[in-house]
Computed example of a mutant assay.
Amino acid sequence: MELITVAAVAENGVIGRDGEIPWPSIPADKQQYRDRIADSPVILGRVTFDSMRDDLPGTAQIVLSRSESAFDVESAHHVSGIDDAIATVESLGSDHAYVIGGAGIYDLFQPAIDRMILSRIPGEYDGDTYFPDWETNDWTLVDRTPYDEFTLEEWVREQS
């Protein structure tokens, strides 16, 4: 079972401000993100799930929440932790899932992540939400694709 983080991250680690992205919209980044996760289950927190209800990503939403045990969306599944999330993804017949936020979910899942797909946004932005720190020596950059307004990086965790 492979867990893959997908995030857009500014140079100073900011990923959000007041529940929104703090930089101007980048359509090419949104499109590659949506295309990547479209046919896969996604793991996300309740606040992120609620913010995406009008246009839910992925084939199934694995929603990590301490309080809510059911959602009024057929494709949404409540989970209480990493093991529960992995079991739910496997019960759906998938061998991978994308972890798509928010910050607390990125942080919680970081030790279990196998791969990261990071949209590197140029510039530093004011924000209240940050991507978790990670030890670059534990990862290998396997792909780096520059676009006009961002650079897409793919990192793979070193096997110990």
Rank of each mutant, 00 (worst) to 15 (best):
E154W: 01
Q32T: 04
R36Y: 03
R53I: 10
E154L: 08
I113R: 08
G13A: 05
D39W: 08
I62F: 00
R144I: 00
E90S: 14
R66H: 14
D18S: 15
D18V: 04
V99K: 03
T151D: 07
L92Y: 09
G13D: 06
L118A: 10
D18P: 02
R120C: 14
L56G: 08
I43L: 06
S40M: 12
T145L: 13
D83N: 11
G127D: 00
D126I: 07
D148C: 00
A10E: 10
H78Q: 07
P41K: 06
I21P: 01
Y147Q: 05
Y147L: 02
L118G: 09
T59M: 11
D29K: 01
G104D: 14
T88V: 03
G45Y: 05
W155E: 13
G16Q: 03
W155A: 15
D83Q: 13
S91I: 09
F109N: 08
L56E: 06
S160D: 05
W23V: 01
I105R: 03
Q110W: 04
M52C: 14
V89I: 09
G93L: 04
I4N: 02
V42M: 06
A87L: 00
V89Y: 00
L141Y: 11
D29P: 01
Q159R: 10
D128P: 07
P111H: 10
L118W: 04
E124P: 01
V79P: 12
D55N: 11
R66M: 06
L108R: 15
G45L: 09
G81Y: 11
A112V: 06
F49Q: 00
Y125K: 03
V156M: 09
S65E: 01
H77C: 04
I26V: 13
V142K: 05
P41E: 07
A38L: 13
Q31M: 06
L118P: 08
L152V: 07
S75Y: 00
Q31V: 10
G93R: 07
T48R: 08
